[in-house]
């Protein structure tokens, strides 16, 4: 998912790139509850009747399910922001809850001189792998939008080139 926005006070243009996430954390927890409640209920009823060995397996499985949901939701909170100013282009990578800089700021920040910046959409060298999108300048390069689909990458590359040429 790509959101392009401009700041009216400055000449800054921002492109926010996030992976697709089709379920919120709250919805994930509701789903987890829908599995956990009947499973724990049955396990506890059986434990009360002396068949307690089912309960630890139920606990282990629910822990694995929670961990899996957490890992995927965490990965889906990745966020990249490409800020195009008058003289600089900044690429910030981090995680967010809604907006990029709200939780502790970016984890990685790279700044380029705008005049030298190129947008490269590189073939991977084999049809087995998707193309890769790079911000390149003065021998340095940062990959962006790894999580986007091919067509979205192509659209993003075109949009960045357009913004850089303005």
């Amino acid at each position: 998912m790509v959101i392009s926005e401009s700041c009216p006070d400055t000449a800054l243009r921002r492109v926010v790139i996030r992976p697709n996430r089709s379920l919120s954390w709250r919805q994930s927890m509701i789903f987890l509850g829908a599995i956990a409640v009947p499973l724990l209920l049955i396990s506890m009823v059986l434990a009360a009747r002396g068949f307690w060995l089912i309960l630890p397996f139920a606990g282990l499985e629910l822990a694995a399910l929670y961990a899996s949901v957490y890992v995927v939701s965490h990965a889906a909170r990745r966020c990249e922001v490409v800020s195009i100013g008058e003289t600089t282009v900044t690429v910030e990578k981090g995680r967010d809850r809604g907006r990029c800089a709200e939780r502790g700021g970016p984890q990685q920040r790279t700044e380029f001189a705008r005049g030298w910046v190129r947008v490269e959409l590189a073939e991977s060298g084999t049809s087995w792998y998707p193309r890769r999108l790079w911000i390149v300048a003065s021998g340095r390069r940062v990959e962006i939008a790894e999580f986007l689909a091919e067509e979205e990458k192509a659209e993003l590359a075109a949009e960045l080139r357009r913004l850089l040429s303005v």
Binding site: I35, F51, L53, L55, F57, L65
Partner: peptide, 12 residues
């Protein structure tokens, strides 16, 4: 997911 722990517990 809801039933496998029951089998695991039973066979254990």
């Amino acid at each position: 997911i809801a039933t496998m722990p029951v089998l695991a517990g039973a066979v254990t």
